[in-house]
């Protein structure tokens, strides 16, 4: 089973080819009728108000920032999780300190209201 990666590559290429094939087939098979109104964004039939390229709530930005921090900390925990049995109590104490820092960070953004939506 040395050429393992080959199967994943074949599988991936198959998935990409199927997706591409379906897109191409519907492009070929479908009829084409152009109407002017088809080119306007759908807003339930009402005249369009402004553009969709708007700025949006900073809440999304804060969530993304918080995610970045916590996700990196999650990634750091994975190597420890694999070998934690052989690291013993020392590893456990260190990991718990790390997790507590993580938990404190969560408490902080919670208290500062970064997780509130109103």
């Amino acid at each position: 089973m040395s050429s393992n990666l080959l199967f994943l590559i074949i599988y991936t290429l198959l998935a990409i080819a199927t997706a591409g094939g379906m897109l191409f087939a519907s492009y070929l098979l479908g009829p084409r009728r152009n109407r002017e109104l088809k080119d306007t964004p759908y807003e339930c039939g009402m005249p369009i108000l402004g553009t969709a390229r708007e700025r949006f709530s900073v809440k999304f930005y804060l969530t993304a920032l918080a995610f970045l921090l916590f996700d990196i900390e999650t990634v750091f925990l994975i190597p420890w999780a694999v070998v934690y049995k052989s690291l013993g109590v020392t590893g456990l104490v260190e990991a718990v300190i790390f997790i507590l820092i993580l938990a404190f960070g969560l408490y902080y953004i919670w208290e500062r209201g970064a997780l509130e939506w109103d």
């Binding site: 807003e43 918080a66 996700d71």
Partner: peptide, 23 residues
């Protein structure tokens, strides 16, 4: 990419939802 307000909101919601749950 749809350049439609509903779609933009849907996409944003998808991303924020993913960010909140993946951790």
């Amino acid at each position: 990419s749809s350049n439609n307000k509903y779609s933009l909101l849907g996409g944003l919601r998808a991303s924020a939802q993913m960010l909140s749950y993946e951790i």
